[in-house]
Every structure is written in C-alpha cells, then in structure tokens.
C-alpha cells in the first residue's frame, strides 16, 4: 500500500542571509501492506508527524520517494495529489479539524460534495456513516455542541465516507479521555477487520501503538533498527 524509499527532509530556517537547515527525517525506508494497522511511535520532535505530512502530500520531501498504491506520489502536482487524497486517503487528526460552521451531517457530507456525488447518494451515504459512527441523533449538531469523542467520530465518519483504502491518523486519541480512547481503538480495529482498511497511525501512546499489527519507532528523524514489530 505505502512504500517509502530513502526519504529525507529538512526545514529551512531564517531568511536568505542567515538561512540554516534543520534536518527532520534522515534516510527513512518503510513499507505498509494493504489491510495492515501500522503505528509509528516516537517522542515529540522525533519527526513522526513530518513523515505523515510527507505521505499525505501536505509537504514535499527534500529527498527520496513515496509510492502509494503503486503510484509515485512524490511526482504528483498539487491538484493531482488533492484528487488522490480525496479518492484514496482518509484523515483523522488530533484536533479533529472539523469545519465549525458545518453540522456533523455537513462535515461528513463534505468529501462527497467535493467528489461531485449526487444529492441522493450523498444523503444515503452520509446517514449510513452517521449510523456507523453512532451519531445519527447528533447529525444537526455543530462541532462546538459535541464532546471530544463525538467530534472524533465525526472526523472518522468524514475520513471513511468515501471508503478510502488508506486512513492516516495523527495522534487520533490525543484529545480524548481514556474511556473514549478505548472505544475509538476498538472502532478502528473493527473497521480494519470488516472493511480491510489500512491504517497508518502516528502516536506517542504505547496503548494506541499496541492495537496495530506492527509498530515502527522513530527517533531523531531515523527509524530505530529492529523496531518493526511485525
């Protein structure tokens, strides 16, 4: 599903005269198979979120290549990557990233609108997803009227509504209490089992890392040898 080859990335700091580079990722190579749940663990500042942002196409790598579903996404234009994200990827963020002016229903419906689906299909799929994430009663609630766990469920609903084969999750339980966290992890495992969705989860939480088939540790921008617990 995902193949990362000799990926390096650095950020440029300062202005022209005093420009310095800050290496974040160094020569990362990894592979995620379809149907896997893979956790990437590491301390804050280890580069794990940068790795996810590179795979998501939010930033371009300094060196190296990324293949997703056998397509070299590092060569994609911004527009092509956007289409690819819409059709092949779902995102779960730590801070949910819901649009505050949209209801739970509208947030979940958004990817369907962006894809240009008909109103009837959209309604059918959105309601089905609301049921799946257990929020049918809260469909007209705005994010500010939902709890953290409910917001994260809306976020998951939005990530799954187009049934993408790959979900990228950045600290999905970071803003949740332990009970909601446990619920969410069970839900992820269920989705993986039932729908065969591949999950790449970035976390610093050992408990979250353990739900995966394997976990990869990153430290100081490098993969730790033998950390692959497949």
């Amino acid at each position: 599903m995902i193949k990362v080859k000799q990926l390096s990335h650095h950020f440029e700091l300062g202005k022209k005269e005093n420009k310095t580079t800050l290496p974040v990722l160094k020569d990362i190579s990894l592979q995620v198979e379809a149907g896997e749940i893979v956790s990437i663990v590491g301390k804050s500042g280890s580069g794990k979120s940068t790795l996810l942002n590179l795979i998501s196409g939010f930033i371009k790598p300094t060196e190296g290549d990324i293949w997703i579903k056998d397509q070299k996404v590092t060569d994609f234009s911004e527009a092509k990557f956007a289409d690819f994200r819409l059709n092949q990827m779902g995102f779960i963020f730590q801070s949910f990233q819901l649009i505050p002016s949209m209801t739970a229903y509208q947030n979940i419906e958004l990817p369907l609108i962006l894809k240009g689906e008909s109103e009837i299909d959209r309604k059918q799929k959105t309601i089905a997803m609301l049921e799946k994430v257990g929020l049918e009663e809260f469909k007209d609630h705005y994010p500010s009227e939902l709890s953290g766990g409910q917001q994260q469920r809306v976020s998951i609903g939005r990530a799954l509504v187009l049934e993408p084969p790959l979900i990228l999750a950045d600290e999905p339980t970071g803003s949740l209490d332990s009970e909601t966290e446990a619920d969410l992890l069970t839900f992820i495992q269920k989705l993986n089992k039932e729908l065969g969705v591949t999950f790449l989860i970035i976390t610093h939480d050992e408990e979250v890392a353990h739900i995966g088939h394997r976990s990869i540790t990153i430290s100081d921008g490098q993969l730790i040898e033998g950390s692959d617990s497949l």
Partner: peptide
C-alpha cells in the same frame, strides 16, 4: 482554516 481542512481532505485548488 476551513480552506486548509478542505484542501487536506482532497479539495482541488481549482475548486
């Protein structure tokens, strides 16, 4: 922020 979210989930810049 809304534009950022839309772009993240796959909104085409053209759209």
């Amino acid at each position: 922020p809304d534009i950022g979210i839309m772009k993240a989930i796959g909104a085409n810049p053209k759209t």
